[in-house]
Structure formats: C-alpha cells, structure tokens
Design a binder for these strands. Sequence first.
DNA 1: ATTGTTTAGTGAAAGTTTTCACAGTGTTAA
DNA 2: TTAACACTGTGAAAACTTTCACTAAACAAT
Lengths: 214, 214
Amino acid sequence: MNNLDGISERTIERLALYRRLLSGLLEKGLEHIYSHQLAEFLGNTPAQVRRDIMSIGHVARSKKGYDIPELLTHIDSILSSGGDHRIALIGIGNLGRAILSYFNQQHSALRIVAAFDNDETRVNRVISGCRCYPMDELKEKVEGEEITLGIITVPGPSAQIVADALAAAGITGILNFAPVPLKTPEDVYVERIDITTAIEKVAFFAGKWRQKGT
Amino acid sequence: MNNLDGISERTIERLALYRRLLSGLLEKGLEHIYSHQLAEFLGNTPAQVRRDIMSIGHVARSKKGYDIPELLTHIDSILSSGGDHRIALIGIGNLGRAILSYFNQQHSALRIVAAFDNDETRVNRVISGCRCYPMDELKEKVEGEEITLGIITVPGPSAQIVADALAAAGITGILNFAPVPLKTPEDVYVERIDITTAIEKVAFFAGKWRQKGT
DNA sequence: ATTGTTTAGTGAAAGTTTTCACAGTGTTAA
DNA sequence: TTAACACTGTGAAAACTTTCACTAAACAAT
Ligand SMILES: NC(=O)c1ccc[n+]([C@@H]2O[C@H](COP(=O)([O-])OP(=O)(O)OC[C@H]3O[C@@H](n4cnc5c(N)ncnc54)[C@H](O)[C@@H]3O)[C@@H](O)[C@H]2O)c1
Ligand SMILES: NC(=O)c1ccc[n+]([C@@H]2O[C@H](COP(=O)([O-])OP(=O)(O)OC[C@H]3O[C@@H](n4cnc5c(N)ncnc54)[C@H](O)[C@@H]3O)[C@@H](O)[C@H]2O)c1
C-alpha cells in the first residue's frame, strides 16, 4: 500500500516539513545545516533526521552539514515525483472557504482550481480566485480541467456520496475533513483530517498528564 | 510520554471514532454490534476493534456482539477520564471562525469558551456564541474561566509566541494548526494538524499509485 | 440435551517506526 | 602532517502497532 521506494508514510510527512523549513532557511541566506539543528527545529531527533534523509538516497557532499539548496532540491524532487496536481474542493462552507482563501495565496504545484457545492446560492461565482460550480458539473470539470485530487468539506452524511462522485470522475486522491471514514476503490488514496478527534485526543492526554507527572 | 494504562495513542484516536459511531447507532435504536461490523464502518479489521476494546478492559457480557449502550458508556468514561475541559481559540481568522462555528453547535464536554486575537477590529464581540477578547486579556480569562486547552489558528510566525502565552497562562494541552512545530514545557501536550502537509502527502501517494498499480 | 456455528478474548508472530551506537570520513587546528 | 574532533550513514536493537490464529464460551437448531 504505502512505502514506495523504501520511503515510509511517516517519512513523507516529515519531508514536507523539512522542505518548508529549509525553504525558509534558504531565504534567510543560510547555506548549511546539521542534522541536530534540523531536529531542533522540528522537535525530533538527529537520528531520525539522518534516517529520513538517507531514505531518499541523499548523500551529503561534506561533513559541514547538509548543503541546503542541494537537499531542498532533492526533497522537492521526491515530493513532486507524484506529478503535478490540480485540486477540486467540494463543500463551500465555513471550512471550505477557509481552505480556499489560504491555499490559493501560495503553492504553485498544488492548486485548487475548482470548487463545488450542491447549494445553488453558493455557486457560479469566484471565491479567493477559485470558480465555484454546482455538483452536476463535477465530472465534466474534473475531466476538462485535469483535476486529480479532491478535498471534501461537506457534512458527514454527504461525504460518502461526494467521495463516490469523485472516484467516478477519475480522481486518485482525497483529503477528507468529514468525520466519517470513506469507502473508495483501491486506487484512490484517502487521507482524513478529523479535527474533533484531534481535540478529544488532546483533552485526554492533557488531562492525564495533569493528573500524573509528565 | 503516551500509553497511559496500556492504552496507546492510536487506540485513543480510534476510541473517539467508535464513540461517535456508536452514539449514532444508538440513536437509530441499535442495541448490539459485532466487531466485524464496527470494523466495516471504520475501515479497519475486526481484530483491531477487539484489541482496542480489550485494551480499555471492556468485557462483553454475551457473544451476541457488544452491547452498544454499555460499550458507549465505557468508552466515554475512558475518553472523559482526562476530565472536563474548557477551550480557548487564538486567531480569529478564516480557519478560527470556521472552527468556532462548527464546534459550538455541538459537544458539551468540550467547549470553546473564549477566543482571542491581536487585531482589535476582530475582538470585543461574539462569534458563534463565543466571546472574543484582545490578547492582553488571555491570562486573566484563562485563569478566570478555568480554561485548560488552547487551539492555535494564528499565522506560523506568531504561533510560538501564542504557545508561550498559553503555557504561561497555565494551559496543559494545545491543538496547533499553524505550520510550525512548537516548543513547549514538558507538561503541555501538543497535537498538530497540518493541512498543507496532508495535501502534499495525498499528492505524493496518489501520484505514485497512478504511476504504478495499487 | 447435543451438536454445529459464531464470536470475543488473547498470546504470539509479523510488520512498522524509532532509537542506539559506532565505524568511517571530512574538517580544523596545531 | 598529524591528531583530535564532529558529524554522517547505517546495521542492529528496541519500541510500538497490527495481524494471525486459536481457545473457550454463548447461541441456535435440532
Ligand atoms: N468547520 C470546522 O471547524 C470543522 C471541524 C471538524 C469537522 N468539520 C467537518 O468539515 C465538514 C465541513 O464543515 P463546515 O463547518 O465547513 O460545514 P458547513 O455546513 O459550513 O459547509 C458544508 C457545505 O457543504 C455543502 N454540501 C452539503 N451537502 C453537499 C453535497 N451532497 N454535495 C455538495 N455540497 C454539499 C453545503 O451546501 C455547505 O456549503 C463537515 O463534515 C464537518 O463535520 C468541520
Ligand atoms: N485556512 C486554512 O485552510 C489553513 C490551511 C493550512 C494552514 N493554516 C494555518 O492556520 C493558521 C490560520 O489560518 P487562517 O487562514 O485562519 O489565517 P488568517 O490570516 O485568516 O487568520 C489569522 C488570525 O490570527 C490573528 N493573529 C495574528 N497574529 C496574532 C498574534 N500574535 N496573536 C493573536 N492573534 C494573531 C490575525 O489577526 C488573524 O485574525 C495559519 O497558521 C495557517 O498557516 C490554515
């Protein structure tokens, strides 16, 4: 399922963090960085940093730490090796609009190019530079605009229907914010972000820690 | 760090899902459920369901499946064993407002009772039933309202400052949406949700799958 | 009652991820 | 030129998580 080329799912997540961090450091004019510095920034261990970097086959030319532009280019090439993606967002509610406004300020390789909703008062306009369409144009636009990923921000009860529509339209990856697990064909990769669960988890562990020590 | 009472971090996340699911099933009048049915709903395996349930020390009275009200009560007692929590949200931007509107429609044990921002045009009003205050009232309100958790929805560059302020005010758990890792005292539990990273991950794996098979 | 079926509970195996610890090597300073 | 040092790359161990596979017990049907 995962683990392409010996790169684990967790490592991919951290590579995205390294990229963002390195990119910022580069802008500040930094040229080199040690694994322990990266670890310090990311809150993990130097050993993990080295193993992550090792797993993409990177070899530092010198022992003055990693060459930032080189490493950045390398990580970038791994992360973008899945190809370019154009994204559709379904569910132009509070969360959907927040994501639209955030996302289309930045990021060039990953762009939300179309948004959809079944509430007709929310469509046929432009939000944060993104065109909004009714649901019955989904398949047409996905195919026409060569959209490959979908972000689901509709209420739980509608999420499966939307996922089915996305899969039928030929999308291969979904980011699901609805608090329900989705059933999709095997060739659709699904990632879920469950904000409510995350808060419940914090509540549990924060409470436990308060009761005990560390 | 984690694994209180032999309950792993992953299990806690799934318990939150079981709770939500069972709660819905109970409302539909269902009384019993088999591990394989739970697994079907959650997209995992019956063995994992049984192990999760076992790990909280639950014992099914009969073999007709789990008694839903009983199991729900038990899971609830575990998840709420961290105590009640009142929550502060910092950063009344697009994402912050989406979370406010969503959260205060539901959930009684976990409530966002105050929101904060350093932009004075955004404070001293009520959004989705939640009072908004300027940052300099943070400590006072956290102490006065007995707030124990914080949700950070400010831009990356401000997140650490806000985290420091929350920790100083005595908060024990943080949910961080800003795309930067936070440094906090050991007795503050931090969970991060990184939407950008999640999309990059989907892009990577969806792309890879498209290139290969499964 | 008896028998066959089905399911929860669980030790042990398998799989995954993180951490340890050290060999090898570039770097620096004398 | 050499010696001391510091850091990377990595095999191996440890820690954690999931899955397998079997036992025992409840249940249903006869
Ligand atoms: N906002 C949050 O902070 C938050 C937190 C946790 C979970 N979520 C989840 O995220 C999702 C969106 O939350 P929200 O607050 O933006 O909700 P919202 O009600 O503001 O927006 C939902 C949007 O989806 C549209 N929609 C409904 N059914 C549809 C369908 N079948 N096809 C197309 N569009 C449809 C609605 O018209 C609406 O515009 C929900 O599943 C919610 O549970 C949100
Ligand atoms: N909106 C999204 O979909 C999205 C996606 C990925 C990440 N994020 C992250 O979530 C966070 C919030 O995103 P957003 O879209 O709501 O941003 P936003 O700009 O709409 O809102 C940020 C809010 O924080 C306030 N703020 C800034 N500095 C502050 C400080 N020091 N103290 C108190 N308040 C302060 C601002 O006044 C503003 O109201 C950001 O870190 C962003 O990177 C958001």
